[in-house]
């Protein structure tokens, strides 16, 4: 015959178990709930219908951090606020958008007199942005990822003067997918969000081109 103390213990245990069960039930089923979107998933009523990743994120159930280059103002905090040093945010080149200019706004400092590779003429502080002559008058610009610190100086230049093909993106091989992104907390334009893990990039494109985001071996096409 159990004594009073044991009986109370069993009662409490049952109570805690029931509470945990209810909690897990609420957590598992709530995100499938229509309330999780203030428009009840009626995307036609919502202003951010294009950029919203909520339905996809709910479907994927796993999210990663990504920054939206369309919101990014290139403040430079990506380089300094990441828990990783150097940052997990790096410049990514959307070649499909690039004009292959000789006078590249992302490559040269504004006001530069001569278009050569002297360090004082180049924007990139770590020489991560490389250029290669293709044919007159086109130059190809590539990023040496291991050197890029994600400062966004080239991105600023490219979006101000060029096509905006240089864009900052979280590189998921380096990103620790922190519970709360330390850059997101300090991002002045709220460009960071949790995106579905199976669609981890938010590269912008020109409106008329639809990006083919098919995952490939080791990476995704953007």
């Amino acid at each position: 015959m159990p004594n009073r103390r044991e009986f109370l213990n069993t009662l409490m245990r049952g109570g805690i178990l029931a509470a945990l069960g209810m909690l897990s039930g609420a957590l598992v089923f709530r995100s499938r709930d229509k309330n999780s979107c203030s428009y009840g998933f009626d995307c036609s009523r919502c202003s951010k219908s294009e950029s919203c990743s909520l339905p996809a994120a709910i479907e994927a159930r796993q999210t990663v951090w990504q920054l939206d280059p369309a919101k990014c103002i290139q403040c430079g905090r990506c380089a300094t606020n990441c828990v990783m040093s150097p940052s997990a945010v790096k410049c990514t080149h959307a070649f499909a958008m690039c004009g292959y200019c000789d006078l590249c706004g992302g490559y040269f400092k504004p006001g530069t007199k001569a278009l050569d590779t002297a360090a004082e003429h180049m924007l990139c502080p770590t020489n991560a942005l490389r250029r290669k002559f293709i044919e007159d008058p086109f130059f190809e610009y590539t990023i040496a990822e291991e050197l890029c610190i994600g400062c966004g100086k080239c991105v600023k230049g490219c979006s101000a003067f060029g096509n905006g093909s240089l864009q900052l993106q979280v590189h998921h091989d380096r990103c620790k997918n922190c519970n709360e992104c330390s850059i997101a907390r300090n991002c002045p334009s709220q460009a960071f969000s949790r995106v579905p893990a199976n669609k981890p990039s938010l590269l912008k494109t020109f409106g008329n081109e639809s990006p083919a985001k098919v995952p490939q071996k080791g990476g995704v096409n953007a």
Partner: peptide, 17 residues
């Protein structure tokens, strides 16, 4: 640009999580 040489545009790769 429309390239006259046999240049093929590289594809943008972003590492998967």
């Amino acid at each position: 640009p429309e390239f006259e040489s046999a240049y093929t545009q590289p594809q943008t790769q972003i590492p998967l999580p």
